[in-house]
Design a protein around this nucleic acid. Sequence first.
DNA 1: GACTAAAATGTCACTCAATGACAGATGCGG
DNA 2: CCGCATCTGTCATTGAGTGACATTTTAGTC
Lengths: 207, 207
Amino acid sequence: MEDRQNSLRQRSRRAVQAELVELAQGLFVERGYESTTVDDIAAAAGMSKRTVFRYFATKEELVLGKYDLLSDELLRRLRERPLGEPLWTSLRRMFDGVVAYFADNAHASRAAAMERVVTSTPALHAAYLHRVSRMQAEVAALACARAKSADDVGPVAVVGAAFACLAAARAAQASTGRSIELLLDEAMDAVAGLRRERRAPQGHHER
Amino acid sequence: MEDRQNSLRQRSRRAVQAELVELAQGLFVERGYESTTVDDIAAAAGMSKRTVFRYFATKEELVLGKYDLLSDELLRRLRERPLGEPLWTSLRRMFDGVVAYFADNAHASRAAAMERVVTSTPALHAAYLHRVSRMQAEVAALACARAKSADDVGPVAVVGAAFACLAAARAAQASTGRSIELLLDEAMDAVAGLRRERRAPQGHHER
DNA sequence: GACTAAAATGTCACTCAATGACAGATGCGG
DNA sequence: CCGCATCTGTCATTGAGTGACATTTTAGTC
């Protein structure tokens, strides 16, 4: 039990994982997520189903596993922002990495097919949203800590709004092909530009 | 094939569905969602597993089925808002029904346990988010139609931000016990009160 | 290079959600 | 009372995921 990390075994494990992801996603894009069984994947990889499940706890992880890294990156970027900066600006800068990632066409075209599989497969899309939700919660916790407002809805809502802007921008990029950077700026400007009328004078309970 | 709707059969079907929901949710709260099998529910209801699946397509629907009605209500409320009203205000008013629902303590205490089950069960929470996401998309489509801006990110982002506020308010209500009405106003004011610094002068691609 | 302990793999059996097919029961309209 | 649609139970099957156990690989040591 010496090296612990990056032993030869660890590296080969990573290699097998990467290979499985590549292989599985190819099959998913080709024949669809639901109609590709884990047995199919295992057969294609020349291993037993049980072994596939030793590399990935669930079938979904073959698709969504990569998003686990994203969380750390977002938190790191947000932590790097100066304390005095408005939260909305910090959040926009936090997304710079993601934006650059999706702005890269070489990647975009490769991942686009997989994105389509995700959004068109209810179970997969649900799991995706769950991961985003967890990420969002972590970012919100950090934002609350920054604002020194422990249990305040404000930061949580603002972080949620920022993620909603990112989602809207990604969707618009997928459908219109416009630049995600511009779309995100547009979306975040639209939200930051909101003005609300005064609240209705008295209670308005209905139904 | 006369009445079609509300025939005796339809009503009895609804009754059985309601009974199953009640029964199942009781078991879920008591023993947890994952450790309650559909067989358990069927046995408790005195019917076969197969029959349960004739009333509910999936186990999740026993918990999340009610949210399907919510979508129509939101759309109806939004449609009732005057065209000249700012979108953010219309969205706040759109939530009035939901707010009233969750402000009712009699309901809140009954549903609170179930809410906890949902948020603490990954699979359920994911399915919940998926439904909310679909609802949000419908509302966004309506908002875009109102704004006469077909494929604009703005309305989509704003609607997403509004839903994020609702989610934040609900979460805060669950943890702090404060009034959801005030919390939602606070959250939506926080988002509407955002001001953003001018964008960074030139491109900022990294990584 | 042989030895040993750990890790990886395959096989088998199992649970549980979900679906299709078929047969029998139930209940409504005439 | 009969005929027909609907409801229901039973059985078989698929597919994800898990536990247990035996076997094979492989890394590190002498």
